[in-house]
């Protein structure tokens, strides 16, 4: 059982470019799904207009109660049966975005619901329009409250990119699989990749805590 740790290091270039693609996909999907999810959360929270509420609710429940892999296969293999085909990359980004948006919808909805009614009333009595009240008063506080959940879902999103390795998307996990099939140095390669992912996760959590402390908590301490 000879472990050759030089192998992954020799191929660090490929691993890094896989990691880069992972990062790109994660970023695009994160921003898009957060935006889409917030829109959904508004509909889910206000429950109006009724038709949109029902449609969004169906969307959210389906995405949250079926596995990512099934959604991916459905889009990549199933939908072309109806005539629309997707490239592996497009299917991956689409599914990840929609999936994550459903979770962000519920996260943001929870955040909005946790804002005391008095904030809405104060905004109303100050003649703020519902839109302004939401954007200036409610939403910033909802984001603050939901911040840990938002960061957690981002981590899950990044893990979700590994599922894309099933299709022809050369992100980190697939790069590792390919290297593995070329050399069979499984333990070394996957250990490396595992530490990669772990480093990313730890980094995000660290950043989250820092941002949280700097932005939010500083406003709370009594002088």
């Amino acid at each position: 059982m000879f472990l050759d740790w030089r192998y992954p290091i020799d191929h660090i270039g490929e691993l890094l470019s896989g990691a880069l693609l992972t990062a790109q996909i994660s970023l695009i999907c994160f921003l898009t799904s957060l935006f889409l999810g917030t829109l959904c959360s508004i509909v889910r929270y206000s429950k109006k207009p009724k038709v949109l509420y029902i449609l969004v609710s169906i969307f959210v429940e389906i995405m949250r109660n079926t596995p990512l892999l099934v959604q991916l296969f459905f889009v990549f293999f199933g939908v072309p049966q109806l005539g629309i085909s997707f490239s592996p990359w497009a299917a991956g980004v689409l599914v990840l975005t929609l999936n994550s948006a459903a979770y962000y919808s519920e996260i943001m909805r929870g955040g909005i619901q946790s804002i005391p009614k008095g904030q809405w009333e104060a905004a109303d009595s100050l003649c703020l329009s519902k839109t302004n009240a939401f954007i200036r008063v409610i939403f910033p506080q909802a984001v603050r409250d939901a911040f840990p959940s938002i960061a957690n879902q981002l981590v899950l999103l990044i893990f979700g990119t590994s599922v894309l390795s099933i299709l022809d998307v050369r992100e980190l996990t697939q790069t590792a699989s390919i290297l593995n099939s070329q050399s069979f140095r499984s333990m070394e390669i996957f250990t490396f990749v595992m530490l990669f992912y772990y480093a990313v996760t730890a980094l995000i959590l660290l950043l989250t805590r820092l941002v949280y402390k700097k932005w939010f908590a500083s406003k709370i301490e009594r002088r």
């Binding site: 008095g118 009333e121 104060a122 009595s125 302004n132 008063v137 910033p140 506080q141």
Partner: peptide, 24 residues
């Protein structure tokens, strides 16, 4: 309106709390 629970906007400074509505 002045509320029993004040209902100030905690994420805005005092200045911004007062300025928000007149500005918008």
């Amino acid at each position: 309106m002045v509320f029993q629970q004040f209902n100030l906007f905690p994420h805005l400074t005092v200045h911004d709390n007062i300025a928000l509505a007149p500005k918008l």
